[in-house]
């Protein structure tokens, strides 16, 4: 990432994770990211300091996602999106641990509003003030929405673990017969 001089590229992975969670489609998430990056190449009125650049970039990515969804006319079709976020579109999911599969599945039970704020904080380490800027909320709302989202995610994970109690043991035991895991 150091090979390029575009400062926005350092936020690419986290922003891609955000776009994937908003769009539920890996290919269109990459399209939105490419468009966003190309805006950083062309625009002359970019913020100068890094913190502001970051907030600006995430705003652009987020708006890009919403524009995309609007174009696709599936703004409220959460069900469609969630189907797509799921398992069909994730080729590397075979490698993911059971825990990661559950986290993915649990995230899908949240609203996209809740997913979005979790991704902004936990994947991108943005401060509450920055998140407040990006989502156009006040910091108090960010705090309570994030906490409720995390509690909902925790609840969803607990439910998943309760409904599949043995499968972890089974998969981890068969996948590493040498016993070198953990």
């Amino acid at each position: 990432m150091q090979t390029t001089e575009n400062p926005y590229l350092q936020w690419y992975p986290g922003a891609l994770a955000l776009a994937r969670n908003l769009l539920g489609c890996h290919a269109s998430a990459e399209d939105v990211l490419q468009t966003s990056i190309s805006k950083t190449l062309g625009s002359s009125a970019l913020p100068i300091d890094e913190a502001a650049q970051r907030v600006w970039f995430f705003k652009v990515v987020r708006n890009g996602c919403f524009d995309y969804l609007r174009d696709q006319k599936r703004f409220n079709a959460d069900a469609d999106i969630e189907e797509a976020v799921g398992f069909s579109d994730t080729p590397d999911l075979v490698d993911a641990s059971q825990r990661q599969q559950w986290v993915r599945a649990a995230l899908l039970t949240l609203s996209s509003e809740q997913r979005e704020i979790i991704v902004l904080r936990d994947v991108n380490d943005l401060s509450y003030a920055d998140i407040a800027h990006i989502l156009q909320l006040n910091s108090g709302t960010v705090m309570s929405r994030l906490h409720r989202a995390r509690m909902a995610l925790r609840q969803a994970l607990l439910m998943l673990e309760k409904s599949h109690p043995v499968s972890t043991q089974a998969t981890s035991a068969t996948s590493s017969p040498g016993g070198t895991h953990e």
């Binding site: 690419y12 490698d95 993911a96 990661q100 986290v103 995230l107 995610l153």
Partner: peptide, 21 residues
């Protein structure tokens, strides 16, 4: 949960990243 979410959502992005760049 926080680190699990981060690990899960960034999983597989690195390789796609360089290609996309």
């Amino acid at each position: 949960l926080q680190s699990d979410v981060k690990g899960t959502l960034l999983e597989g992005i690195e390789s796609m990243d360089s290609r996309s760049l």
